[in-house]
Design a protein around this nucleic acid. Structure first.
Lengths: 142, 142
DNA sequence: GCGAAAGATAGGATATAATCCTATTTAGGA
DNA sequence: TCCTAAATAGGATTATATCCTATCTTTCGC
């Protein structure tokens, strides 16, 4: 928590009671809770905290790299008819998703650490980054 | 498309005009469209098709393994305060997500195929499967 | 081919998740 | 302590996904 306070100060972000409790709650669990769950739990300590504050803070923490989103950020359901082996590149800026194949990664086996958690069915790599187009827009602005 | 018709027959699923067009649309693109996009495009050929039909069919196709969902199925946003290197196990049944680490996968490099698409920032493996608890529930029922 | 039954669809109604708006409060620097 | 910019609460709103049910279509046995 001390490191978190410091991270806020470093970024010029105010250290509010709500923000501390939201982060504390998230950092204290490994279950990757959703917003409602975080809100419910934090409310036990701050009864008046609003859902909006929880949303706002979590989103802000993601943007500052202090927290990550599992899966994709606030996107809609998206589908893929390619059932062959492939991986995904996801642009964190515009949401573009492209498949790619990689001979190196064709034969990755189910890691035994994952097998301890359950019976694996599918496996693929998710590479997040900034796509070429968003990158060029960025360059032309600077 | 012929294979798709056959796959429907094999599964005892009726081959409807709407279903064919929805699948055709999805299979004709690599951009992983969302439901609204699929609906809009299919509507050019079937003007009266409803969003519900698109949702219902895509969901059904996922359940039959003919299509996959990018990211996670109809889940809420979920967050993770663990910013260290780790991978995810996602239960496709109950939505449980657990982190795991794997020495084998600690040093996976950004595949060059992904670098062609953009500038990668993070990388992790996503293993989907059925978690131990869901598995045991399943066993006790049969 | 024909008719019945199960399955699928359209379209409106509804539920749920996420975000917006704005008056008020709070943190942090001078 | 005071001031300013940032943050919050709470209600309103939007957007996404699903439900409901009357109607229609596919499929299968004849």
């Amino acid at each position: 928590m001390h490191a978190f306070r410091q991270a806020c100060v470093d970024r010029g972000v105010k250290v509010t009671h709500q923000r501390l409790e939201i982060f504390r709650e998230l950092a204290s669990t490994e279950e990757h809770p959703d917003v409602e769950t975080v809100h419910r739990r934090v409310r036990e300590r701050i009864p008046t905290i609003s859902p909006d504050t929880v949303y706002r803070n979590l989103k802000m923490l993601v943007e500052h790299g202090l927290v990550s989103v599992v899966g994709m950020s606030h996107e809609r359901l998206r589908f893929d008819a390619n059932m062959g082996p492939h991986h995904h590149f996801v642009c964190v800026r515009c949401g573009l998703i492209r498949d790619f194949r990689s001979p190196h990664l064709e034969n990755v086996e189910f890691p035994e650490e994952a097998e301890a958690l359950g019976e694996p069915v599918s496996l693929h790599l998710e590479v997040k980054g900034v796509c070429a187009q968003c990158r060029s827009v960025e360059d032309s602005r600077s």
